[in-house]
Design a protein around this nucleic acid. Structure first.
Lengths: 215, 215
DNA sequence: CAATTTCCCGACCGATCGGTCGGTTTTGAT
DNA sequence: ATCAAAACCGACCGATCGGTCGGGAAATTG
């Protein structure tokens, strides 16, 4: 049984190659998001995929490893944003703006996986691992917000920790309503979210650094 | 079996009155929030309450009616905020600020119930009913935001519908981290949330209407 | 071709699920 | 003291749960 908790066993296709683990994972995540992980049985997964339960167990060792694979993908995308923005963007204020926008972008790009991640409750080892990873992510983000606050780029009358939770709570809430049926306003979405986070509902006051295009 | 789907059968206490439905509901909601509704079995509920499964069925006709009772309470609190602010507060801008702050306040005041409400996925009739009610709530809130936008109290470069989703996504995210272990900063929390929503991370610019106390 | 590996299935297992049922104990009103 | 309502429990039920197992069909390698 491949893909237990290590990367896929090299793509040397031997037997009947109709489906692969990747394809199955996509279907499973969609079902998990529709009904919730706990509420989705292996039978339902099998029906949705048009295969039998046993076939799922051929690709993934257990229901929880299926979840684990999905959570890993989501966390990879989020940490990639963090690492890249820390490496590329200089200036605490602009870095924070980019972090908000890029996180929103990653969220949309990997929507089903991140949606699943954000709903995890901690009932199983995989879920607890994911919660740990999320805490680590939040910790690093909070440090960047604190940097921006120290640099005077963020108001000082609201606790940076509270502000971090609220702003990224706003960003994460995108998973609750965003659907990909729009053509391509997703690029604009990330910038609008960052703008709303930084300048608020009332709108900008001090001139925003850089860019002033139409949205 | 009382409390099926109509209000409790008049409080004329007859038999052993050690526990009542209210007490049981509180325990059930706490368990639902800990493990998720779908992941919490009636046996676990019974164990947590220190009674047997059958006793739960004596108070509530089914697992879903237990959920329904909890969701009703959450929605009552939210709609009460909406009705009161619409009735009491004049001026689209100030009304919006109050709506944000009071929603955050209600969320904290009824934390377990609202938390449960916000996690409902729509797997059962009760859940679908709650989702319908939430949609109605969101619709009415969006109308108030649109009012404020029309009155020039909200920037016009972000779609009011999008802004509504994001701002209340931020407010709702409070359920994911708030714990009542603080003494009483919850009063300040609601105002800070409203301020962050309206003036953004960068801080105020145009003078905020009313109040200017320390936070 | 045969051998091997992957892919896939039907049948089955113990455990647990939500829910029912019949009966006992406690309580408040009369 | 009586009695009905309310609170409560233990035993039980059909269904479904996550997971196992042995084997068959398709594709690749030699």
């Amino acid at each position: 049984m491949p893909y237990q908790d290590s990367p896929p066993p090299s793509p040397r296709g031997r037997g009947r190659t109709n489906h692969n683990s990747e394809w199955l994972l996509g279907i499973a995540v969609a079902e998990f998001n529709r009904r919730g992980y706990e509420a989705t049985s292996m039978s339902q997964l099998a029906t949705a995929a048009g295969i039998t339960k046993s076939t799922i167990y051929h690709h993934f060792g257990s229901r929880e490893l299926l979840l684990r694979a999905a959570l890993e993908r989501a966390l990879e995308a989020l940490f990639a944003v963090l690492d890249q923005d820390v490496a590329d963007v200089h200036g605490a204020g602009e870095r924070l703006r980019r972090l908000i926008a890029d996180t929103a972008g990653a969220l949309v790009a990997q929507l089903p996986y991140v949606t699943l991640l954000l709903r995890v409750r901690g009932n199983t080892p995989s879920e607890r691992w994911a919660l740990d990873q999320r805490r680590e992510f939040d910790r690093r983000v909070a440090a960047l917000v604190a940097d921006a606050a120290r640099a005077g780029e963020v108001r000082d009358d609201i606790d940076p920790g509270l502000a971090t939770r609220l702003i990224f709570g706003m960003v994460n809430s995108i998973t609750e309503w965003y659907r990909a049926d729009h053509e391509a306003p997703s690029a604009g979405l990330a910038d609008q979210v960052a703008s709303l986070a930084l300048e608020g509902l009332r709108g900008r006051c001090g001139p925003s650094p850089r860019e002033s295009g139409k949205w």
